[in-house]
Design a protein around this nucleic acid. Structure first.
Lengths: 224, 224
DNA sequence: ACCTGAACACCGTTCAAGT
DNA sequence: ACCTGAACACCGTTCAAGT
């Protein structure tokens, strides 16, 4: 993969524009594709306007012709990622898991998406599929309309958190510390009573339990 | 408020260290207090290591003696904010609302906290209070242990999103656009069927409905 | 009209060298 | 031991000036 990228965007000697091989004309699709390429190879942190501009043989200002800003570019990258996902399943938890699996690979993207309210064609396709399955299982339309947000937010938040945990090795240490601290039964009687259960279970288990909780709650709770 | 802050940290002429009035000795508490002051006055975006250092008459490197990094500082600021909140209530939704209200005032902090797993004394006090109320309403301890995470994450995520909406005027426009786009009944039949319900309700209403959904779901769903 | 060089106004974090 | 000046290695976005 890395070799491919080097081949597609070789470092060139700084020669005058005329002498350089013709480059692809810029377009929104080309910018998004470059962003996806850099993210896959080096992570979202390396997807900067300057880096992308370098990759596309132009200056950072030129990218603003095709994307509004970084946040919007992240939204476009997510939608591109979702383009390859098949959402035609009959089990809601499986559907949500397919979405989550994509984000688990790019936790920083999940973190960005969390504050984005994505609106791309493929995200809409996902929303449509979720609404379809909620309807099929008899959930009233008003609950489904609000519930889809809750379900996708849980998926996104879990993926974002997953990344934080695995990216910083510090985290285990600070959880340990908090755990010790928390076992002060005088100050935190309920935390002490619950004990290790607070940190128990795998990410996968908690994700699936969360989906189950939400589906049960959505089915049972009327909107105001 | 602004005047107070100016008074507390007046711009000084660049004079040699000897001639300057004695400054408070640095400490973690002093750094966190400065961060809180700058956040209240100008928003979290202005809380940078360099800005804080300037405020405290030192260089940015000095702050690293007291905080590990920006993320940890954000966690400390949240905990400081929670110090003033009374969590001794008997209604779980009211308890969660008190937490949410704090974050609603600082949406960027909510965004940061979302990927933080806070572990401060006051956040622990909040967790303890939530666990207490779940126990009081007869929720099995294993469900409560996992449920507290779901409840607080919903609160935090909603506050983070609230900020995104109100900070960028763009958002309304892009929601409009998405709404039109989404009404393509051939491509997104379920979205089209649900229609405006997707974007209906106030933030407050959806927040409270989310809490109700989670509480119902947590009570009804066994952990694996 | 479309594009971009250069500038504006910054960042977090590290580390060698003080005291 | 504790502290910090200066440097490292960058940022996103705007806008005047090209073509």
């Amino acid at each position: 993969m890395f070799v491919t990228i080097v081949f597609m965007a070789p470092r060139r000697e700084p020669v005058s524009r005329r002498d350089r091989p013709a480059k692809d004309p810029l377009s929104r699709a080309v910018v998004v594709a470059a962003a996806l390429r850099v993210m896959r190879a080096e992570g979202l942190e390396r997807v900067t306007m300057r880096r992308l501009a370098g990759e596309l043989d132009t200056g950072p200002a030129s990218l603003y012709v095709y994307v509004d800003n970084m946040a919007e570019l992240h939204g476009a990258v997510l939608d591109e990622l979702l383009a390859d996902v098949d959402f035609s399943v009959t089990d809601l938890v499986e559907l949500l898991s397919r979405y989550t699996r994509v984000l688990f690979e790019y936790p920083s993207l999940a973190r960005s998406v969390l504050t984005l309210r994505p609106s791309g064609a493929n995200y809409l396709r996902l929303i449509d599929a979720v609404l379809g399955l909620l309807d099929a299982s008899g959930v009233p339309v008003s609950r489904a309309a609000w519930g889809v947000d809750l379900l996708l937010q849980h998926a996104t938040a879990t993926a974002a958190e997953h990344g934080t945990r695995s990216e910083s090795g510090l985290h285990d240490a600070s959880v340990q510390e908090a755990a010790l601290f928390a076992m002060d039964a005088d100050r935190y009687p309920h935390v002490a009573r619950v004990g290790d259960l607070l940190w128990s279970g795998s990410g996968e288990q908690r994700l699936r339990w969360g989906f189950a909780v939400l589906i049960a709650g959505i089915s049972a709770t009327a909107v105001p």
